Amino acid sequence: MVLSFDRWVGKVAIVTGASSGIGAAIAEQLVGKGLKVVGLARRKDRLDELAQKCSGKKGELYP
């Protein structure tokens, strides 16, 4: 089974725990697929670093 993210491109996803670990990995993958991701976490500085890392990809990360 192949999952297609085409129907989600441009939609908004909320990812909690996005500053590290699985949350950061999920947020980064979703941005790469073209989603607008709202990343939530306690460590804003790490969210800002992740947003810089994701800049230039298909979607966008909003820390």
Rank of each mutant, 00 (worst) to 15 (best):
M1H: 12
V2H: 14
L3N: 08
L3F: 14
S4I: 00
F5W: 15
D6M: 14
D6Q: 15
W8K: 10
W8L: 15
W8H: 15
W8T: 09
V9A: 10
V9C: 03
V9F: 03
K11F: 00
K11R: 15
V12P: 00
A13M: 04
A13C: 12
A13G: 02
I14W: 03
I14E: 05
V15T: 05
V15A: 02
V15P: 03
T16V: 07
T16M: 10
T16Y: 07
T16D: 05
T16S: 11
G17K: 11
G17I: 00
G17V: 01
A18S: 08
A18N: 01
S19E: 07
S19I: 03
S19M: 04
S20P: 06
S20I: 06
G21V: 10
G21K: 07
G21C: 07
G21N: 09
I22G: 08
A24K: 11
I26L: 09
I26K: 05
I26D: 08
A27W: 03
E28W: 11
Q29F: 04
Q29V: 12
Q29L: 10
L30D: 09
V31Y: 07
G32K: 08
G32H: 09
K33Y: 00
K33E: 14
K33A: 08
G34D: 02
G34N: 00
G34L: 05
G34H: 09
K36I: 05
K36A: 04
V37L: 03
V38E: 05
G39P: 03
G39D: 06
L40A: 09
L40C: 09
A41S: 14
R42D: 01
R43Y: 03
R43K: 12
K44T: 10
K44Y: 00
K44W: 02
K44V: 13
K44L: 12
D45N: 13
D45K: 13
D45A: 13
D45E: 15
R46V: 05
R46A: 06
R46F: 13
D48G: 01
D48S: 06
L50D: 12
A51M: 12
K53M: 01
K53C: 00
K53V: 07
C54M: 09
C54T: 13
C54N: 12
C54A: 14
S55K: 15
S55F: 05
S55I: 09
G56Y: 11
G56W: 04
G56P: 03
K57I: 00
K57A: 15
K58F: 05
G59L: 08
G59F: 07
E60Q: 14
E60D: 14
L61M: 11
Y62H: 13
Y62V: 13
P63R: 07
P63G: 14
